[in-house]
């Protein structure tokens, strides 16, 4: 096959960036603590990617199928980095961890497990999570753990775009029509109870933060609140007056949705244990 080489607008390349394969082959081994922390980060990204994957072929406009697909692909990439790295502690692959852990062994937060709902609900979920991730990764690039820092560096650039995508849509839906405004209010009301747990510290996080490896989630809250309140205000929306939902920590209090997500995600891999694909 030969194509017109002068058509520079279609010149393609794979680009240079960290890959999951490279992390696996690097020979670096995560400690037990670091591996568990990587599961926190990786499971969040995986659940959200799984949710976003559903939108492809169902988005409000074809251009948006592609946009949501891109964000999902970025997050899936982050999940693969973190799970591959976590797996080095236990001699497991990313797929061992994604497909052969049971519900109680995942470490994702409840926010990312929530259903897609309508487009407003997905956008609110993306808005909250990308603003949280932005604060997190912008500090994690300083981590004393070089692999975590390298992953954060790659992820941060992509998260900035996710944040922008969610912000642009928040503005449009918040200020667009009465209906879109009402849907955004409803979505905020539904998602906001799961915000608090994003910023909850625990023993593992405290231990790793003291070593300069992890970022203490509570330290992100002030910046998160300031920035998300600003974008909501610009969109003529505001943080709803709802309390944080009880329960929910990364060591085993998870949402009802998790089981359904995993049932679907893991079904084929578990029908053929030990198979390669």
């Amino acid at each position: 096959m030969s194509f017109a080489s002068h058509d520079s607008a279609t010149k393609q390349s794979a680009g240079i960036a960290i890959t999951a394969e490279e992390i696996g082959a690097s020979g670096v081994t995560a400690s037990e603590d670091v591996a568990n922390y990587a599961l926190y980060l990786g499971d969040d990204a995986l659940m959200l990617a799984q949710r976003l994957g559903w939108w492809i072929s169902r988005a409000p406009e074809l251009e948006e199928d592609i946009a949501l697909g891109n964000i999902g692909l970025d997050l899936l990439g982050h999940a693969r980095f973190f799970l591959t790295y976590a797996g080095t502690a236990w001699g497991k692959t990313e797929d061992d961890l994604a497909y052969f852990r049971d519900e109680h062994e995942f470490r994702s937060c409840r926010l990312v497990e929530q259903e897609n709902g309508d487009f407003a609900q997905t956008i609110v979920k993306q808005l909250i999570f990308s603003y949280y991730q932005y604060e997190l990764y912008r500090r994690l690039v300083e981590s004393k753990d070089e692999t975590l820092a390298a992953i954060a560096d790659k992820a941060l650039k992509e998260i900035q775009y996710h944040q922008d995508h969610a912000s642009q849509w928040t503005l449009r839906l918040g200020k667009g029509t009465e209906e879109s405004h009402r849907r955004m209010e409803k979505a905020l009301f539904y998602m906001w109870p799961y915000v608090d747990e994003l910023f909850a510290d625990d023993e593992l996080l405290t231990r790793l933060a003291e070593q300069g490896i992890a970022v203490l989630p509570s330290s992100l809250r002030e910046d998160f609140d300031r920035r998300i309140e600003a974008i909501l205000a610009e969109a003529e929306l505001r943080v709803p007056a709802v309390d944080g939902a009880w329960g929910g920590d990364r060591s085993g209090e998870f949402s009802e949705h998790r089981g359904h997500i995993l049932t679907e995600m893991q079904v084929l891999a578990r029908q053929h244990p030990g198979a390669t694909w």
């Binding site: 058509d7 607008a9 279609t10 393609q12 251009e63 592609i66 946009a67 922008d164 642009q168 449009r172």
Partner: peptide, 27 residues
Amino acid sequence: VHAGSLHAPDATMALRNARDLYTRRNE
């Protein structure tokens, strides 16, 4: 170089859609 066209409600979204549609492979 002209790459093609797309639909968008405004310039801001058109730029974002253009990134996703026409530069998925570092073009």
